[in-house]
Design a protein around this nucleic acid. Sequence first.
DNA 1: TTAGAACAGTTGGAAAGTCAAATAATCTGC
DNA 2: GCAGATTATTTGACTTTCCAACTGTTCTAA
Lengths: 170, 170
Amino acid sequence: MAISSSKSTTTVAKGPDNHRDNRHDNRNGEIDFGALSDLLGYHLRRAQVAMFQNFAKVLDDWNISPGQVGVLALVKANSGINQTRVGNALGIDRSTLVAVIDRLEERDLVARTPSPTDRRSHALVLTEAGERYLAELLPQVREHERQIATKLSKGERATLIALLTKVGAD
Amino acid sequence: MAISSSKSTTTVAKGPDNHRDNRHDNRNGEIDFGALSDLLGYHLRRAQVAMFQNFAKVLDDWNISPGQVGVLALVKANSGINQTRVGNALGIDRSTLVAVIDRLEERDLVARTPSPTDRRSHALVLTEAGERYLAELLPQVREHERQIATKLSKGERATLIALLTKVGAD
DNA sequence: TTAGAACAGTTGGAAAGTCAAATAATCTGC
DNA sequence: GCAGATTATTTGACTTTCCAACTGTTCTAA
């Protein structure tokens, strides 16, 4: 466990009752990450937070989330794909996708067209506006990736993606 | 993210290399990942999804989320810490933390005690029950980590954490 | 051929996340 | 000493995510 927060007992309650004797004065000192510092899940989350914040900064004007970019890119590359397959590819529950696609449809970027072969499913396609929007969006997404990539060497980035793929494989 | 104690067989959003779901609807075969396949953000999300699903499987009985584990571990290691500092340490917005701690407080795992030095803030502490709960919980969290770690060599795991730390650094 | 299993999409309920704004307490600079 | 800035928490509106349950459609096996 990490660096001890050396300030421990300086301000332990002077009141009559201080049975909580493990309380530290934690206003200014270093935080002890305790069990967290060796957990992969914790570091994964921190990296994702940094990633998301940079995405939000670079794509501030675009009114779009990383998940929506995923949907647009996937529908572009697989025109006519259905919602369940999009969800599987992105690791998103199909029920989640309903509202996401609702919003993209409201913005006229994606359309639900009737599948020619299965009346249960919708064939998703990009609209003309969606094609144009994505064409202008992708360079910004790549700029975001480029900014994150400055934190790593080229080899490190490749290694990271390879290791993440191993962890992500089902 | 609702971890809730769902005993039922969870409908897992399958990964790109899982071909079992094409039993009767093979029309569209392979998915083209288009612009996504080279995006770090995409691979980060896939890894996190896999991580989360294993967490949910191993800690199914515990009715707790990864974020709640983070709060408990941090409060344990920094007794008396305030909410803002917990949020900063975990990369969670302070407003998000309000409801998270509300729930932990309802379950009598954490208590908001008055800070002896600042009447604006709450000094967070584990309750007795919270101490016991965390002591039993942590071995399960480590088992979850161990299962994920089987996908990587020991060196790969260390490399991955080091690279994620670089990406996550402010 | 048809009953039942499997599947696609949707809805509803909840947790977890964002940001903006409000309130209250503390700190700072003159 | 006090006005103004800053800080800590909370609330509210919203998005994203999950699961469970439901409708309607398609497939499969007796």
